[in-house]
Structure formats: structure tokens, C-alpha cells
Design a protein around this nucleic acid. Structure first.
Lengths: 237, 237
DNA sequence: AAGTGGTCTAGACCACCAA
DNA sequence: TGGTGGTCTAGACCACTTA
């Protein structure tokens, strides 16, 4: 509650945001009505309205007439960097999507991913129709996600399961081009010199490592496309 | 100017945005003062203020007290998709940056890029120290950018020159992995099986094609990294 | 049908900063 | 130092929605 901000509506924003971030107000919770904020802060309704509209534009709350304002569900689908969900890409191409688990083990964290405690290490293949489209190497922190130990990933890709179960706050992507090499070439059914697009993603929940994923695609069958406008966001207000 | 939007401040936003996108108000141009919009639209200052603040938040304008509101310079470094400027990447690595032009011609547009009229086609190499870091294939519409015909690109990369001279409004990126092949391999001084990261960018000014660029990097010496947070933007208002 | 948020008005005071 | 944008007030009317 105690946040100093130079202006009143910024203090309201900071107060509400803090209660959401701390978890005191969880997704779905109905926050006070505008007139209750007016009474609490002793200000005009326009000031409260400005603050709540900013919080809505920022994705923290949803507002419904007659019903009130509610803490929003975090938007999970990381369309931001133009990296789409594999299942969605395949189905939008009009092909059947499939996933097959190749290996599963519990081990200490690998060198590519510093993480305390044991990790669940998975390896699987994403299919588009009958052809493999991507090899996925995945590590999940069992400290952060103990439930993962019990899940059967035989046919469900770990990415979608994770995103439904663990809220994440930060992620880092790395995109690189690599040669397939003998191992990936065999799994992807391509030449071992095939250039492959490699997408790596590290995910954290406030400094705590959640998961690491490395997806490797045949370069002749997969690319990343994104539209953008110069650092200009939609100005809908 | 004629844009229908359900509310008044949205119409103001749309009107100003249209004048900026069309190029009628170019970067640096001082747009009318708030009180001038008030007179023009016959509304309260708060309504104008709300519209202009939204345009500022969206990156279209900058506002300075006592001075007025100005059309913002487009953010050139397309940090959105995590694609940085090559020169900046090289100098931040602590190496010397260089560019050398290999070929230059005026021709009809290629098949990779549908564009009316003649295009200036350039091919050049970006250097990090003494080693080539990227091959750039560039096409510039001479209809949209007639000045380009007179410019000496011998040592200045066309990308930086263009972005200083032509405001663009839309762009599309494509990221792919390809094998070097004999020609790129020779120019980049790598093996012909080397996996390369290929970044293509199409740029428009309101439906009019400006330029197409294809940059090819050796995969073992260049990658793209980007951080991101779920769909919550800063709520500064 | 009642109450919510959405929008707008017509004022006001203030801080800042370029002229 | 005057004029700009930044903020806020105390109203008002409206559309929508859900209880």
C-alpha cells in the first residue's frame, strides 16, 4: 500500500499492481469498484478511472460494466518475439500434430542450464503429419515444479503442460543456426549437413529457474516470421 | 482526417496517427498545441490531452513542456523482434566494424520482392575486425527512394543510410537457417556446409515497398537473443 | 432495473522550461 | 516569464450488462 509516486493516479496504479504481483489479489479476484477507490483515496472518479484504465491497458486487470474490475489471467502464449506454439503452427498448416517422447530421466542440472536440485530431463519429437518437424530437449526444475515428476509426457508436449500449470514471469530466447549432426539428422530424417534452426528458451518465475527448452527444426521446413511497426504500440487508449 | 471512431478522443488519435503514417507530418514536426486541437474539435482540453497522451505512450509523438508536441523519430533499432543493428553488435563486442560493397546495379525488381519500377541492387559484406560477419543482399525501390541512385555505398551500409532518410511504417522479418552453399561460403570464408542464420526484412511506407534486405550470418558466430515478459506492459500511464 | 464503467465538460492550479 | 503540458476536480450523461 505504501508506495510513493509523484502523482496520485500513479500511486493508485502502484498500489493495485503491488497487490496483484504479491499474490494478495489473485487472477479472477474482483478489485474494489471505482467509487470505493474514490472514498479510499479521497479523490475524483476521473483520477481512479485513469489509474484503472492504465492497469487494464497494461494487462493487469479486466473491466466489465456492471460487474466491476477483475485481476486478469496472465497471458501465456508468447507471441511476443514471434515464436509461436508448434502445435498451433502445424494445425494451421492443415497437418496433423503429434508428439512422441524419446527419453526421460531425473538428473542434476546440465551445464547449459544452471539450476539447483534435480531436474526432469525429457527428449521428444514434434510431428507434422508423419514427418518429424522438431526435436525438443527439455529440462524442468523439480524444485520449482515437483508435480512434473508424476506427469506422463508420452504424448503431450511438456511445453503446453507447463504453461498451463506454472505461471512464469521472465523468459529469454536464443535463435541460432546449427548443422544437424549425426544424432539430430537421424531423428529429423534429414542429411547430417542440413542447416537447422535452433530456438532455445529459458524461463523463470521471479529469479527461480523453471524450465529450459531447446527446439531444433530442419531449416528447409521451418522459419520464423514476424511483422512489426517501429517501436509504436497500438494507440487505442 | 476523416476517420470514424466511436469516441471523440479516438477520432483525434486516428486523425493524428494518419497524418504521421502518411508522411504529412514527418519526424520532428511540431503538431498543433492542445488548445489548437480544442478549437478545431470544439471539445474540452482533457479530451485532447487524453488522445495526445495515448499517442505519446504509443511512441508516435514526444511532448515537451513549453515547446509543444512533436512527431517522434521512429525507433530504428528493431529491438522488438530482437534483431539488432549489425554495426552496434560488432562495436559492442569490442571489434572494429566495416562494410565493403561488392556489387551494384540498377535492374527490375527480383522475384523475391514484388516492386514496381527499377530497383537499386546492392551486395556487400559486413566485417567484424578482419573477418566477414554477414553478407547483405539489398534492393531499394528507386521509385520510393530516388536519392539512393546518387549515394556512394562503398563503405557505408545501405541500411543505416536508408533508415536516416526514409521513414518506414511497416516491416516484416523472416528468420531461417540455410546452408552456406559455395557462393556464400567463399564470401564468408566458411565451409560450404556451414549452417547460416538468414534474416530477411521487407520494409514498407504505407503499402509502398521501400527496401528488401537479406543478411546471412555464419551460424557459429552469430545468434539472436531476446528477453521478454508475459503480456504485461509497464503501467506508467 | 440498477449500478457499473466510458466518456466528456469546464473549469483550476501547478511545474517546468524555452524564449 | 509566459505558455506549455500534467494533473486534478466535481459534476454530467450514456451504454452496457448482469443480477
Amino acid at each position: 500500500m505504501r508506495r510513493d509516486a509523484s502523482t496520485l493516479h500513479q500511486r493508485i496504479i502502484a498500489d493495485v499492481e503491488a497487490r496483484i504481483r504479491s499474490g494478495e489479489w489473485r487472477p479472477g479476484h474482483r478489485i474494489p469498484y471505482e467509487h470505493e477507490f474514490v472514498a479510499q483515496y479521497g479523490c475524483a472518479r476521473a483520477t481512479v478511472s485513469k489509474a484503472l484504465q492504465a492497469l487494464q491497458a497494461a494487462g493487469f486487470i479486466e473491466r466489465r460494466k456492471k460487474a466491476g474490475s477483475f485481476v486478469a489471467q496472465p497471458q501465456v502464449h508468447a507471441a511476443l518475439l514471434g515464436i509461436p506454439d508448434i502445435r498451433r503452427v502445424v494445425t494451421e498448416r492443415g497437418e496433423d500434430y503429434g508428439f512422441r517422447l524419446l527419453a526421460r530421466s531425473v538428473e542434476p542440472a546440465s551445464d547449459a542450464w544452471p539450476c539447483d536440485g534435480a531436474v526432469l530431463r525429457l527428449e521428444g519429437v514434434h510431428f507434422a503429419g508423419a514427418r518429424p518437424l522438431a526435436i525438443e530437449h527439455r529440462e524442468i526444475s523439480l524444485v520449482a515444479v515437483p508435480d512434473a515428476r508424476e506427469v506422463d509426457f508420452a504424448h503431450e508436449a511438456p511445453g503446453s503442460w507447463l504453461l498451463d500449470h506454472i505461471p512464469w514471469t521472465d523468459a529469454r530466447h536464443r535463435i541460432a543456426a546449427v548443422s544437424a549432426g549425426p544424432r539430430i539428422a537421424r531423428l529429423l530424417e534429414v542429411d547430417r549437413h542440413q542447416a537447422c534452426l535452433q530456438v532455445e528458451r529459458w524461463t523463470w518465475q521471479v529469479d527461480r529457474p523453471i524450465t529450459f527448452a531447446r527446439q531444433t527444426f530442419p531449416g528447409d521446413r521451418y522459419d520464423l516470421v514476424g511483422d512489426l511497426t517501429p517501436a509504436r504500440r497500438p494507440a487505442d487508449a
